[in-house]
Amino acid sequence: MQLMRRRRYRSAAALAVLVLLAGTTLWLRPTGGLSGGASSPPERARARQAVHQGARPVIVPRRAWHAESVDTAPGARYAPSVRAAVIHHTSTPNGYDCATVPRTLRDLYAGHAYGRHWDDIGYNFLVDACGTIYEGRAGGVDRPVVGAHTKGFNEGTVGIAAIGTYTRGEAVPEPMLDAIARLVAWKLGPRGPDPRTEVALVSTHDEARYPKGTKAVLPVVGGHTDGYPTRCPGAALYAKLPDIAARAARLQHR
Rank of each mutant, 00 (worst) to 15 (best):
A185Q: 06
Y238T: 15
T197E: 12
G111M: 12
D206L: 10
V58Y: 02
T104W: 06
A181F: 02
T204D: 13
G189W: 02
L251E: 09
R62I: 13
A113T: 04
Y166N: 00
L108C: 09
A235S: 13
G36V: 07
A161R: 11
A79P: 00
A45G: 04
A208F: 08
R63K: 09
Y9W: 15
E135V: 15
I163Q: 01
R48E: 09
L251T: 11
Q2N: 15
I87F: 01
S39G: 13
D120I: 12
G147R: 04
S39W: 09
T100Y: 00
R182N: 01
T25P: 02
L18S: 14
T204H: 08
P242K: 05
R250K: 13
G95H: 08
A50K: 13
L34Y: 07
F153Y: 09
P80L: 11
A99S: 05
P242R: 03
H117M: 07
R7A: 11
A185S: 07
Y134F: 12
S81Y: 09
Y210V: 13
V221H: 09
R143I: 00
I163M: 03
A38V: 14
A22K: 10
L108K: 09
V58R: 13
T204Y: 06
Y9G: 15
V220T: 02
A181G: 00
K212T: 08
H117E: 14
I163V: 07
M4V: 14
Y9E: 15
G140H: 00
A148N: 14
H52F: 12
H149V: 09
A85C: 10
P175M: 11
P219L: 05
R44I: 10
